[in-house]
Structures are given as C-alpha cells and as structure tokens.
Simulated assay, not measured.
Amino acid sequence: MAEPLRIATYDAGLRRDGPGLLLRDITLAEDQATAAIAMIAALRADILLLTGMDQDQQGASLRALAEALAARGVHYPHLVPLAGNRGVETGLDLDGDGRSGGPGDAQGWGRFTGAGGIALLSRYPVDPAGLIDMSSLLWRDLPGAEMPQKDGQAFPSDAAQAVQRLSSSGHYAIPVRTPKGRITLLAFAATPPVFDGPEDANGMRNADEIRLWDALLRGALDQPPPPAPRVLLGNANLDPYDGEGRRQVIADLLAGPLWQDTGPAAPTPVAEDPSHVGPAAQDTAFWRPQAEGGPGGLRVDYVLPERGITVVNSGVLVDVPGATGSGATGSGAGADVAARASTHRPVWIEIELPPPLR
C-alpha cells in the first residue's frame, strides 16, 4: 500500500515586532525560531500550512526557513508565501479608539504589511493559476454578515465598515498536485474573538471568517466552489466547548455534512483544566490557565478532510520526540522544544484520496 498523505497546520510563533526581524532570527538560529524549525522537522508533513508567520515581498523568510529545514533532512521544494491583510493600512480608525494609523487600524491587526501571515510548504507542486484569494472580500459583502454596532450605530463608523475586509489574515483555496491526485486546500487564519469591547467586533468577525467557507461552497460568493476533494485547515481561533467566542459556529462546522472531524489528539494531554468541557488531548494551543486569568488549553487549529476522503490517522504533535522539560508553559534551556517555539502545537492528518472521476 502506498504511503498516506500527511497534511498539517501549525502556528509556529514566527511573528516579530518589525519587518526583517524574523529573517534575522532564522538566519542567526535564535532560540524560538530554532525550536519552531525543530517542531516542523519532527512533524514531517507532506503539506504544511503555517499560520502566524511574518511574510516579506521577496519570500526571503520563508526560503530561509525551508533551507533550515533542508539542513535537517526535511525538504519542501514548493513554497507559497501569503502576506494577507495583516498590517495593510486603511487610513481610518478601524478599532474605535479614536485614532488612525495604529496596528488595530489595518485590515488585519499588524504593525507592518505581512505581519503574521500564512505560508504553505509542500513536497508537491502547487497550481498557481488555480489559486483563489478571497482576502479582499468586504466583511459586509458576506451573505448574512453580522456587523458590529454600538449605541445603535455602525461600529466604529459607516466609513470603516465600507472598507473593512472580512479576512483578518487571509482565506485561500490552494490546489496541490500530489502523486495521489489533485487536492484543494482551504486555508485561513481567523482573528481571536477577544481584545474588543461590548460591541463584540472581534467575536463577530471571527464567526464570519469561519462562515465564509460555507458561503463559498454553497456558491453564495461571486465564484464557483473550488474543485473537490478538499481539506479545510488553519487557525480558527475558536474552540467548540471552551474559551471566548461564538463557539456554536465551530461546533456546527465540525458536526455538519461537509467535513470529517477525526478529533486529532495527543497521546497524553499537554495540560488539563477541570473547569473545561472539551477533551484536553485535542487542545492545540496553551495559554495561562484560567486560575491565572488566561483561557488555558483550547482546540483552535484544525485539519478537516472532506467526506469521501479516507482518514488513516491523525494527531496533535506534543513535542519533538525525546524532548523533556516543564510542559506547556516552560521556558529556557530546560523546557520542552514545543513550549519554546509557540503556544500552539501542530495538528495533522494522514489521508488516502478518493480515485479521480473519469
């Protein structure tokens, strides 16, 4: 039997406070960047979507990352940097603080264009002509969009809502030609449903970023749905059981008719919280525990194959095999590699594609 296709997503913490800093840190083998590279190498995915990775116009940081991985014996000849909406200036006050020009006034929160973008690393060729970029869709143009209001008025203003894009980072349909057949990846990273006020702007936006996929596949947008078979993956920043946000949105997506939720899980949970409802082994991100004012562990990263795709295996990579240390919140030389890299952990699936239609 042929080897299954391993597809993964990971927010590897590869974001910095200014342009060029990530390239510097990868090149100089800075500790966090090196830990992230070690996690990616241990994951050994055939196709990997990185979220929260700074992008530059020349793709230099992504190439440097690929070179560092190649030095570890993991080769990704096909790279797709996707800068998206983070840090794209609007000239307007988009966060309602009465000022413009700040990171919250960009199309997606960011201090510079390309901050915390998306990147695809693949062993197999990507069809650039077939790539669909939905990142310029205005939020208010999503069918059924719920726009924030304050005191009965558009928040933060009518002018802001007239230019506000839905994607805080980006939404993409990316066709990949694998030896087992062509597959379309539906890739995204949604805004956290927090860091706002009673108008719940980020909570609404997060929910609608997830709902975009349903609109696309129903044909409700101004373009045909991308071809099947498809895999939806990325950082939804929403847990179906715990944490902030409109949890029913992701619960409905997971339980709906389009996608298979295999419940990828770690062999042993990284951290457990007795106040949480969801299974701890499925958590993919780990912040301060609730007792310390944080949300604790949450399931926010997803790889969801379309129904009809055979899933062979799935899981959450807790750490580099053989690494030891102080768990989800450790730091320094004695901590595990995963915690030094990111608050997130990679989630992966192994699949067999259905035979192509003839």
Rank of each mutant, 00 (worst) to 15 (best):
E3A: 15
I7F: 10
Y10E: 08
Y10C: 02
A12H: 07
G18A: 15
P19V: 12
L22S: 05
I26W: 06
L28R: 15
E30C: 11
A33L: 14
A38M: 14
M39W: 14
A42R: 13
L43F: 13
L43H: 14
A45Y: 04
L48E: 06
L48Q: 07
L49V: 09
G52N: 10
D54C: 00
G59T: 10
A60F: 03
S61L: 06
L65D: 08
L65K: 08
E67S: 10
L69M: 08
L69Y: 06
G73E: 09
L79Y: 05
V80D: 04
A83L: 04
V88S: 02
L92S: 04
L94F: 03
D95R: 08
S100V: 05
G101A: 04
G102T: 09
G102D: 06
G104M: 10
G104I: 12
D105Q: 07
G108L: 03
G108F: 03
R111K: 01
G114F: 05
G116K: 03
G117H: 05
I118R: 00
S122G: 04
A129N: 07
D133I: 05
D133W: 07
L142N: 09
E146P: 01
D151Q: 13
A154F: 12
P156Y: 11
A160D: 02
V163K: 09
H171D: 08
A173D: 01
A173F: 01
R177Q: 13
G181M: 02
T184Q: 09
A187M: 06
V194G: 03
P198V: 12
D200N: 11
N202S: 01
N202P: 00
R205C: 01
R205S: 03
D208C: 02
E209M: 05
L212S: 01
D214H: 10
L216D: 03
R218S: 06
G219A: 00
A220C: 04
P224F: 01
P226E: 07
P227T: 03
P227N: 01
A228N: 06
P229A: 02
P229D: 02
V231C: 00
V231M: 03
L233A: 00
G234L: 04
N237C: 11
P240S: 06
G243I: 08
R246V: 12
R246H: 15
R247D: 10
I250V: 15
A255Y: 07
A255M: 09
L258M: 12
D261E: 10
A265H: 15
P267N: 12
V270R: 12
A271P: 09
S275N: 15
A280Q: 10
Q282F: 14
D283R: 13
A285L: 13
W287I: 05
W287P: 00
G294Q: 11
L298M: 12
L298K: 11
D301P: 11
R307P: 02
N313I: 08
V320E: 06
G322W: 07
T324E: 11
G325A: 05
G327S: 13
S331Y: 08
S331L: 04
G332P: 04
A333N: 12
A333V: 14
G334T: 14
D336A: 03
V337C: 10
A339P: 01
R340D: 01
R340A: 00
T343L: 09
P356K: 14
